[in-house]
């Protein structure tokens, strides 16, 4: 009788053991959806992305170009005539490096900053209800001691306003 009682208990324990093994196996493999995913490959891609963004963010300052065309044959001449109706912008160096004075010859408005210069020139351009065409000459007259920064900022304002024919003159 005692042996007969033990048999179902034994069967149950065998059943439990096989279920436990199945559970272990399924835990090892992960859920059904992730069974095919390769963790190694994913880690590779994640690291590559990480390196990519590190390289991109440590990139040096980006540089852009303000295009310009020099007049042909003009430098062989002793002097060049200033065009008949140019827009003339004069830049004078101030007391400090950042300080400079801008003057727009022939205009009622006088710019204090490079942004104001750009706004005034934009209004003078045909696209801004002005009278000046894009190829109308703009003469930049540089005073003594004007820095590259001031020169490039002025040039930038003129280009931004839409003018393409820009010339430099050094005031004497």
């Amino acid at each position: 009788m005692a042996q007969k009682q033990h048999i179902p208990q034994l069967q149950r324990s065998v059943e439990y053991r096989s279920r436990f093994r199945q559970l272990l196996r399924s835990a090892h493999k992960g859920p059904r959806g992730l069974r095919g995913a390769s963790w190694t490959g994913m880690i590779d891609v994640v690291f590559n992305l990480l390196i990519f963004f590190v390289v991109i963010t440590t990139a040096s300052q980006r540089e852009g170009f303000l295009p310009g065309d020099l007049p042909a044959q003009a430098w062989n001449q002793t002097s060049t005539d200033v065009p008949a109706l140019p827009i003339r912008v004069s830049i004078y160096a101030g007391n400090s490096f950042d300080d400079c004075q801008l003057e727009l010859v022939g205009s009622e408005r006088s710019p204090d900053t490079f942004r104001q210069l750009y706004e005034i020139l934009s209004d003078m351009h045909v696209s801004g209800s002005g009278l000046y065409e894009a190829d109308n000459p703009v003469v930049l007259s540089l005073g003594a001691g004007v820095s590259v920064d001031q020169m490039v900022n002025t040039y930038n304002a003129v280009v931004l306003a839409g003018f393409t024919n820009i010339q430099f003159v050094r005031s004497r």
């Binding site: 540089e63 170009f65 303000l66 020099l70 003009a74 590259v148 050094r170």
Partner: peptide, 23 residues
């Protein structure tokens, strides 16, 4: 700024026409 002017003059004397300012 006169350094840029001198370089532009040197380019023009050589015959080079396309000069870009880098910013």
């Amino acid at each position: 700024g006169k350094v840029i002017e001198a370089l532009m003059a040197a380019c023009a004397r050589t015959g080079i026409r396309h000069v870009n300012l880098v910013a």
